[in-house]
């Protein structure tokens, strides 16, 4: 295994009129070459802000990246994405790291042809001439499963269905053969049948192109099928990270247990009885000095309300930020 991206202690805040939003509070994780890392967590847990911070895509102001590192380790010498000059960062965006966003309808420019929206990336990063870029774009469109790519090249976004637009977005993201593709809930806005097609497309592309994928989702059901590892986020922090099988078999964080419990089971006879986690997500407007999940946690004890738990190893590649040992049924000792 080779680590290609190493994020350490990322802190991102938004300075809004309502006060400071503590969106991301010290997130660390790594990404291995060619793997699929799923990032799950409730709405507002900081999944998107984490990924957009890495590429400098959060709006500044109101956003501000307070501290952290995001090392591209394959570079020689390794470079920190958070400290690149704007032109250097632009070469990474789209060139080395592709991004697919949630809503394919609003994420494409309505007044430019989709061909144009793909070629501009190719001419910028690969320095292709216009004709070469066009030929390459047509190839890409076919590659992501769009029929009649020569004709479709000249079409505008509104002439495509939602699923087809997401294929276009994917073509944009993979156009320059990036090492990493970040997909921020790429199927949430689509019909269920289309969702499966998009998941399949990602899997095929990964097999053929070998890039690492960071897949942000709410949906633990999808995760089981595609991910190698899972990162669970809560309140702008990492709650748990593990290989996908370990996480489903032996979840170590009470929040992960809750999430898995909330998963509709295919074998369940009564699908209406969805368990959801009690309580509300933490208020990100106040800085916390204790475990963000303590208020909703049935295992919480004094220490959980007084200290922030650090990520600690609990198995091979398995780390959890919790003071309580679910297996032994008692608090952990340091």
């Amino acid at each position: 295994m080779t680590t290609i991206l190493q994020v350490e202690n990322l802190v991102t805040r938004f300075y809004t009129l309502d006060g400071v939003v503590y969106a991301v509070n010290g997130v660390s994780f790594n990404l291995q070459k060619g793997e699929t890392l799923a990032i799950v967590g409730e709405s507002g847990s900081g999944k998107s802000v984490t990924m957009m911070s890495i590429l400098g895509l959060i709006p500044i102001p109101p956003g501000k990246i307070e501290s952290g590192e995001a090392g591209l380790l394959l570079d020689d010498p390794p470079r920190d994405l958070l400290r690149l000059s704007p032109p250097e960062l632009r070469r990474v965006r789209g060139g080395r790291i592709g991004f697919v966003f949630q809503d394919p309808i609003s994420s494409l420019n309505p007044v430019l042809t989709i061909g144009e929206q793909i070629t501009e990336s190719l001419t910028k990063h690969l320095g292709l001439s216009r004709e070469k870029a066009k030929a390459q774009t047509i190839k890409l469109l076919g590659y992501v499963g769009i029929s009649d790519p020569e004709l479709r090249y000249k079409n505008y976004p509104h002439q495509f269905s939602g699923g087809m637009r997401q294929r276009v977005m994917i073509a944009i993201a993979i156009a320059c053969s990036p090492e990493i593709v970040i997909a921020d809930e790429p199927t949430t806005a689509l019909d269920v049948t289309i969702q499966a097609q998009i998941v399949e497309l990602f899997q095929r592309l990964q097999k053929e192109m070998g890039m690492a994928i960071i897949w942000i989702t709410h949906d633990l059901g999808v995760v089981a099928g595609i991910a190698d590892r899972v990162l669970v986020m809560y309140g702008g922090r990492v709650a748990e990270v593990a290989l996908v099988d370990d996480l489903y078999e032996l979840p170590q964080h009470p929040y992960t247990v809750g999430l898995l419990g909330a998963l509709p089971r295919l074998d369940a006879t009564d699908t209406k009885r969805l368990v959801s986690i009690q309580g509300t997500p933490p208020d990100l407007l106040v800085p916390l000095n204790h475990c963000p999940f303590a208020k909703r946690c049935e295992y919480a004890f004094e220490r959980c309300r007084a200290e922030i738990p650090a990520l600690r190893p609990v198995g091979a590649g398995h780390r959890v930020a919790c003071f309580y040992d679910l297996q032994k049924g008692k608090p952990r000792h340091d």
């Binding site: 590429l55 895509l57 632009r90 420019n109 990336s121 910028k124 944009i172």
Partner: peptide, 13 residues
């Protein structure tokens, strides 16, 4: 708009 974020994510000037 979201598509401006997309344009930024492509690394355009």
């Amino acid at each position: 708009e979201d598509f401006i974020r997309t344009a930024n994510s492509k690394g355009l000037e």
